[in-house]
């Protein structure tokens, strides 16, 4: 908070002679022993205390084991006796047994990776389109409030559009082709990108702008040299979140299209429904988050490299970065060269 933002009458920061403010009276002889007792009585674990790495891993593994256990328990037993029937939730065994079918070279249209790639391609295209429109416009609107006010109604509608209604809308507008899928992602994302870019620019402290002004920068120079570079990390943050969401939503429109050549994970879900193969559904539910997480980690690594001035050492914590570095190390003995990656 700069001085300029201080409310009138804010006298903080200057030694104040306030004779009225005396420490509250402390009852004598009760202080120390009571404190010790209290910390002994607290049954909760230490607040926010970092835990060792093995405990982090153990806690995560424990969660997975419990979930798998529940899954196993709910689907154990003979076909008629199990808690959840095959059509409701296939067992672990059944799911694993079906997996090779999604690997089968004889039926590439059912291939899990192939369909993931198709879906990913569509998301990438629609998302890039949304970036091209949203980021420049958002930055401009963050710099010039008039533009922001003009865009406000569009952003309001764009952000609150119900996804289910949007699938119907793009179906009506663009049919069932590629255009429909790309436009779905574009419309679903552009308003969010726009508003996040606006707030990222607005979030940059006014003092940076003022400093640049007193150093003789022109308005355009301030936008290009100060506001945009300082806003970029925050914009990138929101892009990572949005990309994950978009990747989850793409199936909603893919599922509309039937028949050959459609492709995509939504298409795979269609096959699952038509052939009554719930395993496919389970496999998709289990793989998508992993793929999304990998992409997010990759983007995070890119972010750390792009904005080294901000993340510095944080980049070291990136799993993908560490992983790719250790792979590089297998082939490349010079540790310094790898370290500067």
């Amino acid at each position: 908070m700069t001085n300029a933002e201080k409310p009138p009458g804010d006298l903080s920061g200057f030694p104040q002679a306030s004779p009225g403010a005396v420490d509250p009276p402390v009852p004598e002889g009760s202080g120390v022993s009571e404190l010790v007792e209290q910390s002994g009585r607290d049954w909760l674990p230490e607040l926010r205390r970092p835990i060792p790495r093995w405990l982090t891993a153990l806690a995560g593994i424990a969660c997975v084991v419990i979930c798998l256990g529940l899954w196993w328990w709910a689907t154990a037993g003979a076909a008629e006796e199990r808690l959840l029937l095959y059509s409701q939730l296939p067992s672990i065994r059944e799911t694993i047994d079906y997996l090779p079918n999604l690997w089968d070279a004889a039926a590439p249209e059912r291939h899990l990776w192939y369909n993931t790639k198709v879906s990913l391609g569509r998301v990438l295209l629609g998302f890039s389109l949304a970036l091209c429109v949203g980021i420049p416009l958002g930055i401009a609107a963050g710099c010039f409030p008039v533009l922001q006010s003009a865009l406000a109604p569009l952003i309001l509608f764009g952000r609150n559009i119900p996804v289910a209604a949007l699938t119907a809308l793009v179906f009506a507008l663009f049919g069932t082709g590629e255009l429909q899928k790309v436009m779905f992602i574009f419309i679903a994302c552009v308003a969010f990108i726009l508003s996040d870019a606006i707030s990222a620019v607005q979030e940059v402290g006014q003092r940076y702008v003022e400093t640049a002004l007193t150093l003789g920068a022109s308005r355009l120079q301030i936008i290009v040299k100060v506001l945009v570079p300082l806003a970029m990390p925050m914009i990138f943050d929101s892009l990572r979140v949005l990309f994950g969401l978009a990747f989850g939503y793409i199936m909603l429109v893919e599922i509309i299209q039937e028949g050959q050549g459609a492709g995509g994970l939504g298409y795979l879900l269609n096959i699952a429904r038509r052939r009554s193969r719930p395993e496919i559904m389970v496999i998709i539910v289990l793989t998508i988050p992993v793929v999304a997480w990998l992409i997010d980690q990759l983007l995070y690594a890119v972010q750390c490299l792009l904005f080294r001035w901000k993340y510095g050492r944080e980049a070291e914590a990136s799993v993908v970065l560490r992983f790719s570095r250790s792979i590089l190390r297998l082939f490349w003995k010079n540790p310094d060269a790898v370290k500067s990656l």
Binding site: T2, Y208, E210, A212, V226, P229, L230, F307, W309, K310
Partner: peptide
Amino acid sequence: DYTSFDHR
């Protein structure tokens, strides 16, 4: 408050 341009 330190107003160094953090990205430079």
